[in-house]
């Protein structure tokens, strides 16, 4: 039963990363991210039941609060405030995007990353999926022109890294994890302010318009 929860969580994290590339509505993307973060919290919860570390439980509560509630709330408010219903255009269309996502998933399972996935031992496949999430999220940042999508891409990338760390046994001390979550919290706040300032200055959140900054 517990193993099934773990597998469903992993599936959610991976599929959320894939769908983030496919959807255009910003609010849906935020919801997907919140769902992905919930799955990360669920994976951590699975380890809590194994270890019974109360500090880990605190980390889980914080992860849930920051990633599944606070960050989506900030992003939703930003979207509503500036009426950013849809994400700005992408460089690749949907079929090509999905093709690229497939290619990245294959690369993540290939020998290129074997030195990394081997760290996970028995959970080698899980580590490969985590790398696929990292690559797909990276690709989301590259392919999208809208800043909101790019921010969600960065957050999803972070989820992928946490996911990889869990399966490869690289998870850090709870104190450090609390620090990382605090870092994300601050980042979300500062990024929201920056996004508002960019919108006020350029009247758009299309990052390609920011070329004018260099002049």
């Amino acid at each position: 039963m517990e193993n099934m929860i773990l597998q469903i969580s992993i599936l959610i994290i991976f599929l959320a990363a894939v769908f983030l590339n496919a959807i255009k509505r910003n609010l849906t993307a935020v919801s997907l991210y919140a769902f992905q973060s919930l799955a990360v919290s669920a994976v951590l919860l699975y380890y809590f039941f194994e270890n019974r570390s109360w500090l880990l439980l605190f980390v889980i509560i914080l992860t849930f609060a920051v990633k599944s509630i606070i960050a989506p709330l900030f992003l939703s408010r930003l979207i509503k405030k500036h009426h950013l219903k849809y994400s700005a255009s992408t460089y690749l269309n949907i079929p090509l995007t999905l093709l690229a996502v497939t290619a990245l998933t294959v690369i993540a399972h290939s020998g290129i990353f074997s030195s990394l996935t081997k760290i996970a031992g028995e959970a080698q496949n899980m580590a490969a999926i985590a790398i696929a999430v990292i690559l797909i999220s990276f690709f989301l940042i590259i392919n999208r022109k809208g800043i909101i999508s790019q921010m969600i891409g960065v957050l999803s990338l972070e989820n992928g890294i946490v996911f990889f760390a869990i399966f490869s046994g690289l998870e850090q001390a709870p104190g450090l994890q609390i620090g990382i979550i605090f870092n994300i919290f601050i980042w979300i706040m500062i990024a929201s302010v920056f996004v508002s300032m960019i919108y006020r200055q350029f009247g758009t959140l299309d990052s390609t318009e920011m070329k004018l900054l260099k002049d």
Binding site: I141, I142, K145, S207, K211, K214
Partner: peptide, 17 residues
């Protein structure tokens, strides 16, 4: 140095790969 942030992230991504 195109001034396009997507391009810069692509460079990082390719360098990583």
């Amino acid at each position: 140095q195109s001034g396009n942030i997507n391009a810069y992230i692509l460079y990082i991504f390719l360098a990583l790969l």
